[in-house]
Design a binder for these strands. Structure first.
Length: 206
DNA sequence: AACTCGGGGCA
DNA sequence: TGCCCAGAGTT
């Protein structure tokens, strides 16, 4: 794969507005926002977190909230019961096991309730600048179709992308793949006629 | 590997 | 209305 830069350039041209839309100011806020973003769009998550972080900016204020309080504040997001319980328990684990700080280790992050491989990658990359390429369903589908990787598991896809793509473009390309996955390279009924990297497509699952 | 959770967004 | 979703946990 020697035309990675070319593919990224095309995608950047197709999605000039691609960027991280998740609202956060601190590692703790990013962790909360990312947990809330599972199976929900960043836009709907932001509608909740902007006001929430205004009133409860950090762990010390969050830990005063009961599960029911959190449910009331994030009810607009899907899966809000699971997510409220996760946030509630995360606050207590951070207090008791991590001295009130957000850990930067993959194993430590994934030990937190509601934090899986994808959320851990995002927190590591965005909050701590640790080399990690978050692979969600869109990144997995798009990069495999475009032929950037033939790996069959998210972890191996992540490894391949980190080798292929220069580290300073990981964050941007991550969002390019997600935007492309949502707008053009959809799982079902993709808009191939509008796709600027159709020539490279391996047509997996089409 | 296959299920479940769930309100919003969108056709 | 009905279908899908910027995942994670459980079986």
């Amino acid at each position: 794969m020697d035309n990675v830069e070319e593919i990224l350039d095309k995608l950047e041209k197709q999605h000039p507005d691609a960027r991280c839309e998740l609202y956060h100011n601190t590692p703790f806020q990013l962790l909360v926002a990312t947990v809330l973003s599972a199976q929900s769009t960043d836009k709907s998550v932001n509608k909740v977190t902007v006001g929430l972080f205004e009133e409860y900016p950090d762990l010390d204020s969050f830990i005063t909230l009961e599960i029911g309080d959190i449910e009331d504040k994030i009810r607009k997001i899907g899966l809000y019961k699971n997510k409220s319980r996760s946030i509630y328990n995360i606050c207590r684990v951070l207090k008791s096991d991590f001295d009130g700080m957000v850990p930067c280790g993959e194993k430590e992050l994934m030990s937190l309730p509601g934090v899986g491989r994808k959320t851990a990658s995002v927190v590591r990359a965005v909050a701590f600048g640790i080399p990690a390429f978050a692979v969600d369903t869109h990144v997995f589908r798009v990069t495999r179709r475009i032929g950037l990787t033939e790996a069959k598991t998210p972890d191996k896809v992540s490894d391949d992308l980190m080798k292929l793509i220069p580290e300073d473009r990981w964050i941007l390309s991550h969002h390019l793949f997600i935007f492309h996955g949502r707008r053009i390279c959809k799982a079902k009924n993709p808009l191939c006629a509008e796709c600027m990297v159709f020539e490279e497509c391996m047509k997996i699952g089409l």
